[in-house]
Each structure stands twice: as structure tokens, then as C-alpha cells.
Nucleic acid binder design. Structure first.
Lengths: 149, 149
DNA sequence: GAAAACTAAATGATATGTTAATTTTTTATA
DNA sequence: TATAAAAAATTAACATATCATTTAGTTTTC
């Protein structure tokens, strides 16, 4: 669906169109992931934290490390990690070197859940990216990075 | 900043990179608008509703019409309109033809506020779009629309 | 070595996003 | 026409986003 159809106006300059297109594309992505994860009682944010922790391959991360790696910086990592703790998908301990910090790690249960979710999420991602060929994906990446530069 | 630097991992396939790039770009856009509107006690969502109403040039819109035109569909248009009502930026009346519906219109005060906000928002938009030339903007639009198709 | 400054995380308050349930009104249908 | 079904908006309940404040621990500085 073209942006013009969504906002029901044809008089949009190209700059505004790009802005709206980025926001609308993100909205569609979120919607898709939301629906995919919902049956597993997972929010996209919780899923994101789990993935970040897995990326550490066993090493723990502090709260601020996690926050730094989030795409949309959620200042309430504490509360997200609380939810994951209750589901026993992560552990949280006071850091030995610095008692202000927390060491957060993914559990085996968390890793297993990700194993189930991975193909689902991948399928949803590809629903979008399959529409473009390699060259187009590359161009899109470059343009978005330039857009943000 | 490249996506790889944000998530601190170089092993990302191009598909995933595009997904993350869209999400991260949106996040940056939101951040920017949020900061611009905050001094006016306006959220991006409230601003969006105001703009949609202005687009009607005097005609009222129903709740469901507004919702339909929002980029991210917020089912709580009622609450957003409540906030705008309190600030006297919109009016809300029961629709004559169908008493289940509401007629929502922007007030003069609302229009005046938009007049102040317009150049601010435009400047923030251009902070991003000025990085790209016309051709690149056009390509970006086309790729994003294809991505969502 | 004590006070001040800083850092990391948690907590509280308010706004929004999402879904489900409810209320009111209109339309369909038996 | 009475009842059922549908439509539009509101309300309630819960999760998340954002900001400010608080708490606890660490580092700096005098």
C-alpha cells in the first residue's frame, strides 16, 4: 500500500513520504513480530533482550550493556529482565567486581525457547525481505544508513 | 552508525540487517520528533491526530476515520482525543446522522499550534532527508514500498 | 579518611499500545 | 415488531516507553 493511500492525501512531498514510509514500514514489522511471538507470551522487547544475551555466548551482560544494544532504547531494562526472570529464561546476580552492577545471563530454558522462535521469526522477516533481491536489499541498507548519518 | 556497530556483531546477514535498519531508523526518527515536540507538551501521537484533522479542512472526522489514517494504529484514539480536548485543540460532538459516531474537528487554537510546530517538525525531518538527494529519496521510497508489498 | 561527585540499577509516575469487555445505537431478520 | 446481530465508541486491564527520583555502591578530591 502506497503511503498516499494510507494517509489519504496525494499532496505529500518526497521528503515527507520517506519519513512516513520508514515509520509505516516499522509499524508493519512490529505488527508482524507481535503476532508471531504472542502465542509464546513473548513481547518483541523481551525477545530482543533474549537474543542479545544469547549473542554473548555464555558471558553475562550488565543492565546498561543490554540497554546499549537494544534497537529502541528502552530505559526500563530492569522491568523487562524482571519478566524474563519470572519465566526463568534468564538469571540475574550481583556482579562480583562491582556490586552496583548486575550480571544477566540467558538460561538453558531461554536458549531452548529461542531455538523454537528462531525459525518463526525468520519466516516473518523473510516475508518482507523476499520481496527484494540481494542488490535491492543492499541499496536499501545503504540508503537507510545514509539517511541516519 | 552502522547496524553492526549498534548491535555489536558483524555476523548479520543482509536480510536481518535491513529489518534492523528499518527499526533503528524509525527509532531515531521518533526520538527526534519526541524531543522537538516535548516543549509543547505534545506527544508524536497527539501531533499526528492534529495533523490528520487539519487535513480535512474543516470537515469533522469520526474516531474510526482518525484511527484508519494513523501510521501506527493506536486503538486508543479515544484517549488521545481526550487529551487534545482538555487542551482545547479539538472539539468532539455526537454525530447527527448516527449517534454512535463522534464528530471530531480541530479548533483555531489547534490550527495555531500546528502553525508553530510545522517549521520545527519540518526542520527535524530535513535533518534526515537532506542527507539524500532526490533520486535517492525516490529509490528509498520505492524500495520500502516494495519491502512492504 | 570523610564529604562530594559520580555510576548503576531500581522505583514511581504518567502516557501510550494492545486486547477484551461493555455500552449505546443502528441494522437485519425471523 | 421484537429480537438478534452488527457497528462505534468507551472503558478496563495490563505491558511498555519515558522521565525523574531514589537507593546503593564506587571513585574522586580535598
Amino acid at each position: 500500500m502506497r503511503i498516499e493511500e494510507i494517509i489519504k492525501s496525494e499532496n505529500v512531498d518526497i521528503s515527507k513520504k520517506v519519513i512516513l514510509n520508514v515509520m509505516y514500514s516499522n509499524s508493519k514489522l512490529n505488527e508482524t513480530f507481535y503476532v508471531a511471538l504472542k502465542p509464546f507470551d513473548m513481547s518483541t522487547e523481551q525477545f530482543n533482550v533474549l537474543r542479545i544475551l544469547r549473542g554473548q555466548k555464555g558471558n553475562a551482560l550488565n543492565m546498561s550493556d543490554i540497554q546499549e544494544r537494544m534497537i529502541a532504547k528502552t530505559s526500563n531494562t530492569t522491568r523487562l529482565v524482571d519478566k524474563l526472570l519470572k519465566k526463568e529464561l534468564v538469571t540475574r546476580r550481583v556482579c562480583k567486581d562491582n556490586r552496583r552492577k548486575m550480571d544477566v545471563s540467558i538460561t538453558d530454558k531461554g536458549l531452548e525457547l529461542l531455538k523454537i522462535l528462531d525459525p518463526l521469526v525468520k519466516a516473518h522477516e523473510e516475508h518482507f525481505t523476499n520481496k527484494l533481491n540481494e542488490e535491492e536489499l543492499d541499496t536499501l541498507n545503504k540508503l537507510l544508513e545514509k539517511f541516519r548519518s
